[in-house]
């Protein structure tokens, strides 16, 4: 099995919107460009926040922070998203 095991199933489609952004990016760029990697990071962050992936430093997942320099605007919006996501996830886990 891989290092971090399996991704648990996202039964409620909580991160589907990020996935769709990412797939769109890949279709357009045809390559795994920095923007798309940023979206990938965002997806993983989403997963971590919803408790569907083990929390870890992004560096350990191959994101060394050079993506942030290229698009600061996106990162700021990300932070906002992250916050909202984290709060919602907390509620969710409590509910479950």
């Amino acid at each position: 099995p891989p290092e971090r095991g399996s991704f648990p199933l996202d039964h409620f489609g909580e991160c589907t919107h990020v996935m769709k952004q990412y797939l769109e990016c890949i279709k357009v760029k045809r390559e795994n460009q920095e923007e798309c990697r940023l979206l990938a990071k965002k997806y993983l962050q989403c997963r971590m926040d919803t408790g569907l992936f083990g929390k870890d430093d992004m560096k350990n997942l191959g994101f060394h922070g050079d993506e942030n320099a290229t698009s600061t605007s996106l990162s700021s919006s990300n932070d906002g998203n992250n916050n909202s996501n984290s709060s919602s996830s907390d509620n969710k886990t409590g509910g479950e």
Partner: peptide, 13 residues
């Protein structure tokens, strides 16, 4: 190398 995937584990749909 795979960091994480959905392999080798039972997935219930």
């Amino acid at each position: 190398s795979k960091v994480a995937c959905f392999c080798f584990e039972e997935q219930k749909l």
